[in-house]
């Protein structure tokens, strides 16, 4: 996507290092994402891609380096963490919808208790978002009654209901049956068109080619190569990148 006007730097990771015990899982990660940019992160499993985006909303804690989101530094400061979590929405591989609440309640819960919106307003917004992701009729159903693709779309709507500036996607389609992947990707594409800043970890290469502004390849905790989709898929530079792409394309 080339005609977009990108904004200022909204995510900045500077020399970020993380260890799980003795295991060095993120090594000297330097990354800057602009507003309205769509960045796709690819790489073999265990390369630290999920860990990286989970560090951004403090689901994981980094030991070294700085992470700044929308001008707020990620530290042990409660206020900062809450603020950053309000700015970022996350979509998980396993959807993680709340099974004991209806779709409507899933989407309105955080709105009412974190953003303190009155119930009516929250429900209107929820309905709006459900229309946007294409399933307004499922509002009163329970997650268990929906298909995987529908659940993930509800998850996206739930994250969007908080009006985040950034959307983080952790392998959103990896747990879906093939025929449902498209519906979720379509929603994500539409999101990108409307100008949402997105950081997406995925294996869907077509999505990367069509939608991404930049593609990042990570391996063994390190960012190996960053480039435009054209650059990436036609002319990768690093040997590792070449090896990886040869295995999956």
């Amino acid at each position: 996507m080339s005609d977009k006007k990108l904004g200022e730097y909204i995510i900045e990771c500077e020399d970020v290092n993380k260890w799980f015990g003795e295991f060095h899982v993120l090594k000297d990660v330097n990354l800057r994402v602009r507003e309205r940019e769509v960045v796709v992160v690819i790489g073999p499993s265990g390369s630290g891609k999920s860990t990286l985006i989970r560090c951004i909303n403090r689901l994981e804690e980094h030991q070294e380096g700085r992470i700044v989101v929308d001008g707020i530094e990620l530290s042990n400061d409660l206020r900062n963490i809450s603020a950053i979590r309000r700015e970022t929405g996350m979509v998980f591989q396993q959807f993680n919808l709340f099974p004991h609440l209806t779709v409507m309640q899933n989407i309105t819960l955080a709105q009412r208790f974190v953003r303190r919106r009155p119930r009516r307003e929250a429900e209107e917004k929820a309905l709006q978002l459900l229309k946007r992701v294409g399933i307004p009729e499922q509002a009163q159903k329970y997650p268990g009654q929906l298909s995987g693709g529908q659940q993930q779309r509800v998850a996206i709507a739930r994250a969007l209901a908080m009006d985040p500036k950034i959307m983080l996607f952790d392998e959103p389609t990896s747990a879906l049956d093939p025929e449902m992947i498209k519906e979720v990707l379509d929603v994500m594409k539409e999101l990108a068109i409307t100008g949402m800043t997105m950081l997406v970890v995925t294996h869907e290469m077509n999505f990367a080619r069509e939608v991404a502004d930049r593609v990042i390849f990570m391996d063994a905790g390190r960012i190996v190569e960053i480039g435009t989709p054209e650059h990436f898929f036609t002319d990768p530079q690093h040997d590792r990148t070449k090896l990886f792409l040869s295995q999956i394309l």
């Binding site: 970022t88 998980f92 396993q94 993680n96 974190v114």
Partner: peptide
């Protein structure tokens, strides 16, 4: 994942 989703939404 339930806790994580909850935290990601900003719930204390």
């Amino acid at each position: 994942g339930q806790t994580e989703a909850s935290q990601a939404l900003g719930l204390n």
